[in-house]
Computed example of a mutant assay.
Amino acid sequence: MLDLASLDIAPLADKAEALLRSPLLTLLHNAASVHRTHHDVEDIQKASLLSVKTGGCPEDCAYCPQSAHHKEVGLQKEHFMSPDLVIEMAAQARAMGADRFCMGAAWRKVRDGAEFDAVLDMVRGVRQLGMEACVTLGMLQPHQAEALADAGLTAYNHNLDTGPEFYGEIIGTRTYRDRLETLNYVRAAGITICCGGIIGMGESLRDRAEMLAVLASFDPQPESVPINALIPVLGTPLGHLPRIHPMEMVRMVATARILIPKTRVRLSAGRDGFSVSDQILCFMAGANSIFYGDVLLTAPNSGLPLDDALFETMAHIES
């Protein structure tokens, strides 16, 4: 059972902070060694992400343009998508090379009813395509987690976002305990956990270390850890912040790989601002998944042509 009060994260946070501060080449070498011990370095999973219900979220997450609190963003609210359309888009993603399809709804929590039943249909449809299915729907109750498991859900995404000490600076409508409670329900239902966070929100290096320490303290550790770089959106409280330097992402990926060696580290939001070389360094540091496509929920992504060029650059060169 995940319970922040019972977790002594200080020793792991000290280790994580030391890694984040270590010389980059040494950190890269150590992370690459761990990565090769546990993974095939050529195995980089392509996942596709779709917003099935956009905007109007009652949460106040400072980074998120989908929050109803950030009225100056001007995001066009979209109604809940039909399962048939979602499954059709999943099939298109599979045809383009994705083998994991992730669906997000801008909800604070799941409510029983027609829309949740539709999500279950989406999960069943994606699984019937032979793809992994992941959803991010906000907070869950145990019976809802069990229903998702029965539908064949592969993974539930529920990010911590940041370290516990900085969390209150970013979100006021949901507690860290709330997040851990949902993750407990997910794990109890037998669904794998996809849980990571965002860097570049004004947090300290210690905050990043503490987030990784919490993740590394999970037993078992998360099967999937997405690392996101903030995409500042005008109209949100963090819209004025600069983008992070790509090497901050490299350090974060490398440290996550060392502390959580068997997980898939997902190079997620923010890589649209990274060069091919930056992203290859992230793969060397231990990232082994990307979101493949033009949009991440409502944020820009690298785009299919650039991603195809990235994988072509890394491919074996024929004589």
Rank of each mutant, 00 (worst) to 15 (best):
S302F: 04
S33P: 00
L238F: 07
A151Y: 06
V34N: 06
V126T: 15
T236Q: 11
G138S: 09
H240C: 12
D278F: 05
T175F: 10
I87D: 01
H70M: 08
A32F: 04
A188M: 06
G293A: 12
S277Q: 14
M249H: 14
G200M: 03
T136H: 08
L230T: 02
A155H: 13
L153R: 00
G168Y: 14
A285W: 08
R179I: 15
D3G: 04
K109Q: 15
V225N: 11
C64K: 08
L234G: 06
H79C: 02
I260C: 02
L24M: 13
G130M: 07
P246G: 10
L120H: 13
V123C: 00
T263N: 09
A95F: 04
M81S: 14
Q66C: 10
K53V: 00
R243M: 08
D178K: 05
S82D: 06
A91V: 04
A5S: 14
T175V: 03
F274E: 00
V52I: 15
L12F: 04
T54W: 03
M1N: 09
A189K: 10
L148P: 08
E72L: 11
D294I: 01
T182F: 09
M103T: 15
R179V: 13
I44F: 02
D219M: 07
P305Y: 01
S224C: 09
I191E: 06
R251V: 00
R187M: 15
G235T: 01
L85V: 14
R251Q: 06
D112N: 14
A62T: 07
L238K: 09
